[in-house]
């Protein structure tokens, strides 16, 4: 498991299971629908759940294979701060918009950022 993403991976893996269940449910509901337009909608929802599942699966795979940029929203201005792939805890980055400096920290196996003095 990728360090720094413990909680995120737990949530995403739960999402993956839920989308799998949704795909199955909507396929079942489409099968028993009497109204043609309702049937079409349930078929569409099943395809969407499959798409969600695949997109979530790709993110999980990227995280687990260290192919995911570690990034955060700046705590000052909301701009994106990117620590890159496979950063070390303690690495420092400056927000390119407001210039506030942050360090990458690990809190119970979840990455976070903390303010550094200017």
């Amino acid at each position: 498991m990728r360090e720094g993403y413990k909680s995120v991976l737990e949530f995403l893996e739960a999402d993956l299971e839920i989308e799998e269940e949704q795909e199955h449910l909507y396929n079942q509901l489409a099968t028993v629908s009497k109204d043609a337009r309702v049937k079409e909608t349930f078929q569409h929802l099943a395809r969407a759940a499959k798409g969600h599942k695949e997109a979530i699966g790709r993110i999980i795979k990227d995280i687990e294979s260290d192919n995911h940029d570690v990034s955060f929203y700046c705590l000052m201005c909301g701009w994106e701060i990117n620590f890159g792939k496979m950063p070390s805890v303690g690495n420092e980055e400056r927000c390119s918009l407001c210039c506030q400096k942050f360090a990458l920290v690990d809190v119970d196996n979840d990455y976070a950022i903390k303010f550094l003095p200017q």
Partner: peptide
């Protein structure tokens, strides 16, 4: 609301 990762 809980995640701070822009990509995710």
């Amino acid at each position: 609301k809980a995640f701070g990762d822009p990509q995710i």
